[in-house]
Design a protein around this nucleic acid. Structure first.
Lengths: 139, 139
DNA sequence: TTAAGAATGCAACTTTGTTGCAAAAGTATT
DNA sequence: AATACTTTTGCAACAAAGTTGCATTCTTAA
C-alpha cells in the first residue's frame, strides 16, 4: 500500500483531497485519540479551521473515526479499526482509557465492554466506557 | 428539613449564598442531568453566567455533583446521591443513560458498572459508562 | 456589630464552533 | 486531455462558550 489514507477515502466513497489525506495521516501516525484542537495545531497553517471541523464530521458519518466522550469538553477522535469500518453499522465496543498523568486517551482494542442489564423500558443502542487512571507508560 | 440545599452547602463547608441555593434547587427539582446551559436558561436573569460556571466548579470539587461525559460537547451534571456525598472520596459507579429521543440524561442509580480487566500496566481510578438508546418514557 | 475572608458581577477577552457564499479542486464522461 | 458537473475549501462574519482580574457585596465567625 503506497497510500493508506487514499485507500480509506476510496473505500468510503469520498473524494480524495489534500486536507483529508493529511488529517488521515495525522490519525494514522498518532498513538492516541486526538481532539479537534490537536489536529488544528498540527495543520492549521495548511488548512482552514472550518475544513478541519467539516472533515472530522464527514469521517464520523462515514465511520472512519469514532468519538470518545469526555468530561472536559474535549471530544476526542480515533481511527476505527478494521472491524469498525467493514461492519456497515458502526459500533466500537472497546473500552477507552484516559491517563490522568500524560493526558493521552487510547483505545483498549482488546478490552470489550461488559454487558449491562438496563431497567425495564430502556433500550440500548450504543454504549461507551471510559476509564481514568495511570497508563502503562506513566505507571 | 426546611431547606435541603442549605443543608448540603453546610455539610460541604460552603458559605450559603442565594445563587448556590438556587442552583441546588434547580438540581433537586430536576429529573435529569443538567448542562451548564440548562442552568443558565433557568436563572440567567438572576445570576451572572460567570457565577454559574464557578458554582458548578465548586460543587464538583466538593463532590456535591458529578459530571457525565458526552460526545456532544455538553458535559452534564447531576446531584450525587447520599453514597457519593458521604464517602469522602467521590466515586459514582452507576451507569448513565442518554435518551436519543427526548435527549435527557439520567443516572441509573441501581445499575452498577460491571468490573473490567485492564491490560497489564494500567491502573484504574475512575470509570464512566454512558448508554444511549430509548428511555422508558419514550419507548 | 464588625472585621476578615469569600463570593459575586461586570467588563473585557480568548477560544470554540457555525453558516453562507464564491473560488478552487476533484470526478466522471467523452 | 478537455469538458461539464459536483464536491470541497477558504474566507468572512458571526454566535456561543469559557476565562480572568478587579472592585463591590455578601457571609461568617468572633
Amino acid at each position: 500500500m503506497k497510500n493508506q489514507g487514499e485507500d480509506i477515502l476510496k473505500n468510503s466513497a469520498l473524494s480524495v483531497t489534500a486536507s483529508r489525506k493529511r488529517i488521515l495521516e495525522i490519525f494514522l501516525s498518532a498513538d492516541n485519540a486526538l481532539a479537534h484542537q490537536d489536529i488544528e495545531t498540527k495543520c492549521a497553517e495548511q488548512y482552514d479551521r472550518v475544513t478541519i471541523y467539516r472533515t472530522l464530521q464527514t469521517f464520523l458519518e462515514k465511520g472512519i473515526i469514532h468519538n470518545i466522550p469526555s468530561t472536559d469538553n474535549m471530544v476526542r477522535y480515533a481511527l476505527c479499526n478494521e472491524t469498525c469500518i467493514t461492519s456497515g453499522h458502526h459500533h466500537d465496543n472497546h473500552v477507552h482509557f484516559k491517563c490522568d498523568n500524560c493526558g493521552k486517551t487510547v483505545c483498549l482494542d482488546d478490552v470489550n465492554i461488559p454487558a449491562v442489564n438496563l431497567p425495564k423500558g430502556y433500550t440500548m443502542k450504543e454504549i461507551n466506557m471510559v476509564v481514568n487512571g495511570t497508563c502503562k507508560s506513566c505507571k
